[in-house]
Write a protein that binds this DNA or RNA. Structure first.
Lengths: 137, 137
DNA sequence: AAAAGCGTATTAGTATTCTTAGTACATTAT
DNA sequence: ATAATGTACTAAGAATACTAATACGCTTTT
């Protein structure tokens, strides 16, 4: 598989965050499936011309987010979503971030209904390829 | 009007962000109405026992977000939402943040529909007090 | 005109974050 | 064994972020 990750030096986001986001999105869209192996730390670092530590940090974040499982000596693999044990803290974090987003949307003059509709539309763009579902023909 | 803003030293968020968020939320919930004057930079700083520059920074952020209008020498006032000219950049920013949120939700194992429902529910908690609308009895 | 109240600008110091570098270690695969 | 994997640790430098101190200019009030 070709390398889809690419970092933007001009971005305001740290390199390791860029990696985390791109992999997270790929998993959400099921472009990376359960059990898929991520590039080796040193290999990805070489391709991106960055320090291996930076890639390792990204992988650490992904593991703490329960998105991947690492087996030392073997590699880093996409976790099985069925094993996600989302606790209250996860949901609370999500709710908080939603509120911040809603606040911003309302302050931009959008109506609550429009905001919710926009969110649902964007969700559908993901769900088309979501885990356990298939796009309807 | 009493002072509703309170900062938490133990928070992971910078002081000026805490101020921005609390005022933003107050505006979204219409607890602060159009034309309302915010506390003077020095006054609020004195009450919070922080540097006036920190408050000023918060106000600057709020102004760039078009949430308030500042008139040097006079004060800082809540903007008229009808004058919001939300441009493409605003919407794009919002959409991006939505996508990040959706990604996180899906990766937590939530289904698209559940995510959208959760968002809609939380939106309604705001809309009850939203600008131009009244809570139905 | 003076005084008081307001936001702004500039500068600086401190703390934190990010990235790199180098080395070493433990585990797994070949 | 050898190679490949993730991990741990220390160190260092650079960049960024945050807060503070001070001075300035505009507006309102007196």
């Amino acid at each position: 598989m070709a390398l889809w990750i690419q970092i933007s030096p001009g971005s305001d986001k740290p390199i390791y965050v860029q990696i985390v986001e791109q992999i997270s999105e790929a998993v959400a869209k099921n472009e990376l499936a359960t059990g898929d192996k991520l590039p080796a730390v040193r290999k990805l670092a070489a391709e991106l011309v960055i320090n291996p530590n930076t890639v390792a940090r990204a992988y650490t974040v992904l593991e703490q987010a329960k998105l991947v499982t690492t087996k030392t000596g073997s590699g880093t693999f996409v976790s099985d979503p069925k094993l996600y044990s989302r606790d209250a803290a996860d949901i609370n974090m999500l709710a908080e971030r939603m509120d911040t987003l809603i606040t911003r949307g309302l302050n931009l003059g959008l109506k609550g209904g429009d905001l919710a509709a926009m969110f649902r539309d964007r969700t559908n763009k993901f769900v088309g390829k979501q885990k356990g579902e298939e796009k309807k023909k």
